[in-house]
């Protein structure tokens, strides 16, 4: 068995990303879609951190992870606020019902 290296982390992140995509597509609940998006973001961030350890990027890679986390938090806040607004209007968080742009 080879020792754990860059490939392992990258492949794990590929798995997480695919799960995230599957989750985001398969669900109709807006919160569940958000869960899928968070999975994808975490996969990307994990990638960056792994490259920062094994590649030539040192602190810059981690810096990007930090910003990804901050942006993910911001995105979650806005997304959940939108979900609340939609829920108040439609009494549901089913994105299939929120399919009109106006009204």
């Amino acid at each position: 068995m080879t020792s754990v290296g860059l490939h392992h982390f990258v492949l794990l992140s590929a798995v997480l990303f695919s799960l995230g995509i599957a989750c985001a597509i398969a669900r109709r609940n807006a919160v569940a879609i958000l869960v899928g998006i968070e999975l994808m973001l975490n996969a990307a961030a994990l990638n960056l951190a792994a490259f920062s350890r094994f590649g030539a990027l040192r602190a810059e890679g981690q810096l990007f992870v930090l910003f990804v986390i901050v942006l993910a938090a911001a995105e979650a806040v806005v997304g959940l606020a939108l979900i609340l607004a939609i829920h108040r209007r439609l009494r549901s968080v089913d994105v299939h019902r929120a399919d009109s742009l106006k009204g």
């Binding site: 590929a14 695919s18 398969a26 669900r27 109709r28 609940n29 089913d94």
Partner: peptide, 27 residues
């Protein structure tokens, strides 16, 4: 938590994983 396009989602995820995996393994 109604299921939307469950099989579409799983198919997309699986295809994505296949493509990513085969690419990354040889990278």
């Amino acid at each position: 938590n109604p299921v939307g396009s469950r099989w579409l989602g799983i198919a997309c995820g699986a295809a994505m994983l296949a493509v990513l995996w085969t690419t990354l393994v040889r990278a």
